[in-house]
Every structure is written in structure tokens, then in C-alpha cells.
């Protein structure tokens, strides 16, 4: 139980601080730490494959996209730090978030979730997981592949813009 509390504390703290900071790069890096904390939770829960996938996707890939986006959307170095907006907005957000938190906590605490059967720790080897993915979930896997391809192409098209001077440049190569 103690590892869970530690992981939860660290993850929540990094996430909260990340969304409160003014420095965008620091925010992004702290959020990446919190994603790593979530991966640690998966590892603790015994979902090894998901934990590594989480690190690979979030810490390795999404983080890079976020950091590139931060650096590409600033005019000067000091643009990195963004001010907190109007206090009214912040208070409204806190109130909404607090209300949702209260509802969720109340619901979780009052629901009679039975203790798990003793020794019923589910385990899933990578091989079983692969068979599951390739068997019953093969269609979903294919659709995710198509989705990722489309998303990749779409992201490139959206972000590339419509500058024409790039096309006019001469092809590279030695004379």
C-alpha cells in the first residue's frame, strides 16, 4: 500500500504544480514526470506492458511534440512564461474542479467495492496479450493503425502550412 500512496502523492503533486507554474517548459517537464508516475502505477499494478508503452508514448513521443510546440509558438525567449489569467477565471475553475472532486470522492467512498478475492492477482503475459490483440481485437488494432496514419498525415498537413518558397528551393545534391 505504501508504494501506491507514494506514487499517487508524487504524481498528483507534479501534475498540480505543473498546471500552476508560469514557465511553460517547466510545466511540460513536470507533466512528463507525472506521466512517468502513472507508468510507475501501472508497473505497481502488474501491467508491465502498459507501463512501458506509457513511458514510450508519453515520455518519449508526446513530450517531444509538446516541447516542439512550445518552442515553435513563441516570439521571444520570455514568451515562455505565461501569466495566470484573471482571478475570476481561476476561482471559477477551482470551484468547478472542487465540486467535481467532491462528487467523485463521495461516489467512490460510498460505493461498496468489495475487497478482492485473496490471491486473485491477475497476470497477463505479453504473449497472451499479443494473442488477444491479434485474435478478438484484430479489427480494432487495424483501425488504430489507420487512425494513427491518418493522424500523422493530418498533423503534417496542418502544421506544414502553405508556404511556397520551400518548394521552389533547388533539389539538394553535389554539383
Amino acid at each position: 500500500m505504501i508504494p501506491l500512496l507514494l506514487i499517487a502523492g508524487l504524481t498528483l503533486a507534479t501534475a498540480a504544480v505543473a498546471l500552476a507554474l508560469r514557465n511553460l517548459i517547466h510545466s511540460a517537464l513536470l507533466l512528463i514526470a507525472s506521466w512517468a508516475g502513472i507508468a510507475a502505477f501501472y508497473l505497481w499494478a502488474g501491467a508491465e506492458f502498459v507501463a512501458f508503452a506509457q513511458v514510450l508514448v508519453y515520455v518519449g513521443a508526446v513530450s517531444m511534440v509538446v516541447l516542439f510546440a512550445v518552442l515553435l509558438t513563441r516570439r521571444s525567449r520570455d514568451d515562455i512564461s505565461v501569466a495566470i489569467d484573471s482571478p475570476a477565471r481561476g476561482i471559477a475553475a477551482l470551484l468547478t474542479g472542487g465540486a467535481v472532486l467532491g462528487v467523485l470522492f463521495g461516489a467512490v467512498i460510498s460505493s461498496p467495492l468489495g475487497a478482492p478475492a485473496a490471491g486473485a492477482r491477475p497476470s497477463l503475459s505479453v504473449k497472451e496479450l499479443g494473442l488477444q490483440l491479434m485474435g478478438p481485437h484484430a479489427a480494432a488494432l487495424l483501425i488504430v493503425g489507420v487512425l494513427l496514419t491518418v493522424a500523422l498525415l493530418g498533423a503534417v498537413v496542418i502544421a506544414a502550412g502553405d508556404r511556397t518558397d520551400a518548394a521552389e528551393r533547388k533539389p539538394e545534391g553535389n554539383p
Partner: peptide, 23 residues
């Protein structure tokens, strides 16, 4: 049970994300 703790953890994380997205 541990399940309670996990759910509390995830709801807190959800609300932090919500507050961040709104504020």
C-alpha cells in the same frame, strides 16, 4: 480496499486536469 485508493487517486488526477484545462 486498494481499489478505493486507486479510484481516489484517479479522481484527484482527473480534477487536477480539469482545473488546469479551465483555469
Amino acid at each position: 480496499s486498494p481499489l478505493h485508493l486507486c479510484l481516489l487517486f484517479s479522481s484527484a488526477l482527473f480534477c487536477i486536469g480539469l482545473i488546469g484545462a479551465l483555469a
